[in-house]
Design a protein around this nucleic acid. Structure first.
Length: 419
RNA sequence: GCGGUUAUGGUGAAGUGGUUAACACACCGGAUUGUGGUUCCGGCAUGCGUGGGUUCGAUCCCCACUAACCGCCCCA
C-alpha cells in the first residue's frame, strides 16, 4: 500500500467542517480589521527564502523542500508566508497603492522538512496577517489584537501573550556583543548546544533548559537595557496601547524569534497543549525586509499561526466546533418498482433546495431507516408498490414517529413547510 | 539530524513458537413477509505495519525498513 508522505495527514469529512469554521472565523475577523486576502504560489524561487528568512536560520539550512524544475529553476515549497507576501508587495508595486498601510492576510499550507510530532507536521497550515507600510505602534497592537480576537472568538481561554522588543539593528548589535562578552569567558561550563549558540545566536542561550541554573544566566544582560532611546520609546508606546486595550501580556526579554528579519516588537501567543509545543502564534516587526527584497524602505509587521496547533488547543480546552448537519429528507424504497422511482423524487427534493439522500447499497427497509437515522433525517419518504399506484408517499416525521400520506406532486411543498 | 516507546479487523483492544486469533463497539442480516433510535439471536481478521532471517513450524524470537507518539533541536 502506498502511504501518505511522512508528516502529512488527511482531513477527513468529520474534521473538515472544523477547518471550514476556523477559516470562516479568520476571514470574518480580517474583514472586521480591514485586512485583505493576498494569495501567493505554494512555491517560490529558493533565493527568496534564503534572503528573506535568512541564510543562517534552521528553516533555510535544513528544513526546506527544495527542488529543481524541468527548466533548471531552483524552487522551494514555501516554509512560511511573510517572504512571499513581501515579494508580492514589491513585485506588484503595492507600495504605490494609495491604500497604506497594505493590510494583508493569507491562509494556506506551508512546508518544512522536520521530524513530525503532535503539532508539528511537514505540511501544515498557517493563517497569517501582514501590515506593510506603517511604523506606527498602533499597528503592532492591532495585529496582536487581531490574533487574540481570533482565538477568543473560537472559544480559547487559556491564552498567554508574551511580548518583547529586539530593538532596532543598532540596539540588537549592542546587546548581542554584550551577551557574547558575558558568556564567552565561561562558555566551557555550558552545554554543547550553548557553545554553538554563542556565536550563532547568543540570545538562545538564555532559554536553554540544561543550563538553566548556571549563575551567569541570572546576571546576563537583558535586551531591554540595550534598547536605544528610539527603540525604547517605540516599545513603550506599543505596551501603552495594549494596556489601554485591556490586552494582558507578559514581558519576556528572552523571547527571540527564529527568523532573521525580526526587529523591534516580537510576540508569541502560548496556549494549552498536551505536549512540549505550546506556541500557537508567533510574530513581530520586520522593518528591513521589504528593502532587503528589493522594494523601497518600508516598515512591516505580521504574525503567523498554525491551524493544526489551534485545533490541538481547542481539543485540550474541551471546545467542540461540532456542527450538527442534518438531512431534511431521506427517501426509502420498498421493492424494485419503487427503486426506479426514488431517484427522480429525490432529485426533485434537491432541486427544490432540500437536503436529501437515499440508500445506494440495497439495504433492507430496516437498514434504510437506520441510515436515515444516522443522517439525522427529519423526514423519511417511504415509497412502495401501493404508494406508486396511488401516487402518494408515506412521509414519516422521525422526531415524533407520526406519518401521513402526501401526493407526489405536493411532496416538496409539504416538506418545505414542515421543516 | 539524535534518543526513547509503539505498530493485531472499520474502531478500541486481548493473546500464543504449533490445529478454529478472545472480548467490546460499529456494520450487515433475522426475530417484526413494508418502518429508525431499546432488546434478543446470527454473521463479520485465509490475517496480526512492510521485507528478510532463525525454526519442522512464527502474529508471537532476531534484523532492516516504514509510520505514529514522546523528548532534544527548532518552530507555527
Amino acid at each position: 500500500m502506498i502511504q501518505i508522505p511522512r508528516g502529512t495527514y488527511d482531513v477527513l469529512p468529520e474534521d473538515a467542517f472544523k477547518w471550514q469554521k476556523i477559516e470562516a472565523a479568520a476571514r470574518e475577523i480580517c474583514a472586521r480589521f480591514n485586512y485583505k486576502e493576498l494569495r501567493t504560489p505554494l512555491f517560490e524561487s529558493t533565493a527568496l527564502f534564503q534572503r528573506g528568512v535568512g541564510d543562517t536560520t534552521d528553516i533555510v539550512q535544513k528544513e526546506m523542500y527544495s527542488f529543481k524544475d524541468r527548466g533548471g529553476r531552483e524552487l522551494t515549497l514555501r516554509p512560511e508566508g511573510t517572504a512571499s507576501i513581501v515579494r508580492a508587495y514589491v513585485e506588484n508595486k503595492l507600495y504605490g497603492d494609495p491604500n497604506q498601510p497594505q493590510k494583508l492576510y493569507y491562509i494556506g499550507p506551508m512546508f518544512r522538512y522536520e521530524r513530525p510530532q503532535a503539532g508539528r507536521n511537514r505540511q501544515f497550515t498557517q493563517f497569517g496577517c501582514e501590515a506593510l507600510g506603517s511604523a506606527d505602534p498602533s499597528i503592532d497592537a492591532e495585529v496582536i489584537s487581531l490574533a487574540m480576537t481570533f482565538y477568543q472568538t473560537l472559544g480559547l481561554k487559556k491564552l498567554k501573550l508574551v511580548l518583547n522588543s529586539l530593538g532596532d539593528p543598532e540596539s540588537r548589535k549592542a546587546h548581542r556583543d554584550a551577551l557574547i562578552a558575558h558568556f564567552k569567558p565561561s562558555i566551557g561550563e555550558f552545554c554543547d548546544d550553548c557553545q554553538q549558540r554563542l556565536e550563532k545566536n547568543p540570545l538562545r542561550i538564555l532559554d536553554c533548559k540544561a543550563d538553566h541554573n548556571h549563575p551567569l544566566m541570572a546576571t546576563a544582560p537583558s535586551i531591554i537595557d540595550y534598547l536605544n532611546d528610539a527603540s525604547r520609546d517605540y516599545f513603550n508606546k506599543v505596551k501603552a496601547i495594549l494596556d489601554e486595550m485591556g490586552i494582558d501580556y507578559e514581558l519576556d526579554p528572552t523571547l527571540v524569534r527564529g527568523l532573521d528579519y525580526y526587529n523591534h516588537t516580537t510576540f508569541e501567543i502560548m496556549g494549552a497543549s498536551q505536549g512540549a509545543i505550546t506556541t500557537l502564534m508567533g510574530g513581530g516587526r520586520y522593518n528591513g525586509l521589504v528593502s532587503e527584497l528589493g522594494g523601497p524602505e518600508t516598515p512591516g509587521i505580521g504574525f503567523a499561526l498554525s491551524i493544526e496547533r489551534l485545533l490541538l488547543a481547542l481539543e485540550v480546552e474541551g471546545i467542540s466546533l461540532n456542527s450538527d448537519p442534518a438531512l431534511d429528507g431521506f427517501v426509502v424504497a420498498i421493492g424494485e418498482a419503487a427503486e426506479q422511482k426514488t431517484p427522480v423524487l429525490l432529485n426533485r427534493l434537491r432541486l427544490a433546495g432540500l437536503t436529501a439522500d437515499k440508500d445506494y447499497i440495497g439495504r433492507k427497509v430496516k437498514g434504510q431507516f437506520k441510515q436515515a437515522d444516522r443522517d439525522k433525517a427529519k423526514f423519511v419518504v417511504v415509497i412502495g408498490d401501493e404508494e406508486l399506484e396511488q401516487e402518494k408517499a408515506v412521509v414519516k416525521n422521525m422526531a415524533d414517529g407520526s406519518q401521513e400520506a402526501v401526493a407526489f406532486k405536493d411532496l416538496t411543498d409539504y416538506l418545505k413547510e414542515k421543516i
